Simulated scan of single mutants.
Amino acid sequence: MTKLQSLPRIAAALSLAFALAACGQGQQGAGAPPPPTVTVAKPTVRAVTDQDEYVGRFVAIDAVEVRARVSGYLDKIHFRDGQMVKQGDLLFTIDKRPFENTVAQQRANLAQAKANLAFAESDLERGKQLVRERTISEQVFQQRTQAFGSAQAAVAANEAAVKQAELDLEFTELRAPVDGRIGDRRVSPGNLVTGGTTGTTTMLGTIVSMDPIRFEFTMDEASYLRYERFSKMGKEVTGRAGGMIVGLKLLDEKNFDRRGAMDFVDNVIDKSSGTIRGRAVFSNPDGVLTPGMFGRIRVPGSPSYDALLLPDAAIGTEQIKKYVLVVDGENKAVMKYVTLGQLTDDNLRVIKDGIDANDRVVVNGLMRARPGQKVNPQEKGASPSAAAATGAESGTQAKN
């Protein structure tokens, strides 16, 4: 190939090289992308109280087994299984006829004893005159005195027998000793009921009080000591003085909206579990809270103190550590590891350690920023609304 023939190819190659160089210069002129825009806010400072949570069960303040005091055949049942009853309501009736006969018999015996007493009294009065006139001997007079005393004792014994018979007749009607909900009947009418005070008596039903109701739970020894230390310092938390307001939620409830008060802490620590029993009282006007039901209680775990709070969405996770991104004076994102506390009712997280009140924390745009990267910060208050605005973006962030 001659030199004249190769000239077009050389010219094409040079044109391609110039074009590539111009493209590279254009890319260099475009520069890096702008820093990401993030929302920053200083932590909210607020007085908070640490809360401890425990699982426990409801127990009735009064729980009564309805048993007969006298034996007999069950005559009638005066309630529906499971209904609410008031103190004094008639529940069961035992056949009264044998007991009515016994009352009539004892009253007759009492009348006879009173007649004997009247005769002995008049005989003794005559004896007093006769012994003064020496008509009867002292021995006869003493016999009449003894007869009068025996007649008095017989009247007293028969009066007691009448009262017992009337009491047994009264016991044929079994009434509710407390307000509450009664269970199902354990015996049907027509069956023989064994009464008395021994362990072989027939249980006819059970009644448990419903309003108010107690909630029992166990706390570990370390928590118990912490509560007691605060109490000794004059900072009552959940000590033995009672009256501290606590929150409660049931298994299907999200918030601790039910309010009650501590009223008891046990006097011994269980040797096998190292826990001690606590108790709170809750009102139960609608009867939803039932003895034996599980629940979760929240009790104050510290005195009130000033804490730093951030939206929960501002917190990221690195393996097992929690961190936040703080924007420094050069608008660079800096990672700071933090120690988390409780989540408040308005979805703010208590930060116990790792930041201070003047830090500008990224509360929106956490997924767009990287440690050491420059950002474009925009100020915004650290409030629950900020947390709500970041919910869609930070849904992948792990929560404590």
Score class of each variant (00 low, 15 high):
residue 6 S to A: 11
residue 15 S to G: 10
residue 21 A to E: 12
residue 25 Q to M: 08
residue 35 P to D: 11
residue 37 T to K: 15
residue 38 V to G: 07
residue 57 R to A: 11
residue 59 V to E: 15
residue 59 V to A: 14
residue 60 A to Y: 03
residue 66 V to Q: 06
residue 67 R to H: 01
residue 84 M to R: 15
residue 95 D to Y: 05
residue 97 R to Q: 13
residue 99 F to G: 03
residue 110 L to P: 06
residue 111 A to L: 11
residue 113 A to T: 08
residue 113 A to N: 02
residue 117 L to P: 00
residue 118 A to M: 02
residue 128 K to E: 15
residue 130 L to A: 05
residue 131 V to C: 07
residue 138 E to I: 09
residue 140 V to Y: 05
residue 140 V to P: 00
residue 141 F to N: 06
residue 144 R to Y: 11
residue 145 T to F: 10
residue 146 Q to R: 15
residue 148 F to E: 14
residue 159 E to M: 05
residue 159 E to G: 05
residue 160 A to K: 08
residue 161 A to V: 06
residue 167 L to S: 13
residue 172 T to E: 02
residue 175 R to F: 02
residue 177 P to C: 06
residue 178 V to P: 09
residue 183 G to L: 10
residue 183 G to P: 10
residue 189 P to M: 13
residue 189 P to D: 12
residue 190 G to M: 05
residue 197 T to L: 15
residue 198 T to D: 14
residue 202 T to D: 12
residue 202 T to K: 08
residue 209 S to T: 06
residue 212 P to Q: 06
residue 216 E to S: 09
residue 217 F to T: 12
residue 218 T to Q: 14
residue 218 T to Y: 14
residue 223 S to V: 12
residue 223 S to A: 12
residue 230 F to C: 00
residue 233 M to F: 09
residue 236 E to K: 01
residue 242 G to I: 09
residue 244 M to P: 01
residue 246 V to N: 01
residue 248 L to Q: 07
residue 249 K to P: 08
residue 254 K to S: 14
residue 255 N to D: 08
residue 266 D to S: 15
residue 271 K to R: 07
residue 277 R to Q: 09
residue 281 V to P: 08
residue 281 V to H: 08
residue 289 L to R: 03
residue 290 T to R: 15
residue 291 P to I: 00
residue 294 F to Q: 13
residue 299 V to K: 00
residue 313 A to C: 10
residue 314 A to W: 03
residue 325 L to T: 00
residue 325 L to W: 07
residue 326 V to D: 12
residue 340 L to I: 05
residue 344 T to M: 11
residue 350 V to L: 07
residue 350 V to E: 15
residue 355 I to H: 03
residue 370 R to H: 12
residue 371 P to F: 00
residue 373 Q to R: 08
residue 377 P to D: 05
residue 381 G to V: 13
residue 381 G to N: 08
residue 382 A to K: 04
residue 388 A to V: 03
residue 392 A to L: 13
residue 396 T to N: 13
residue 399 K to L: 09
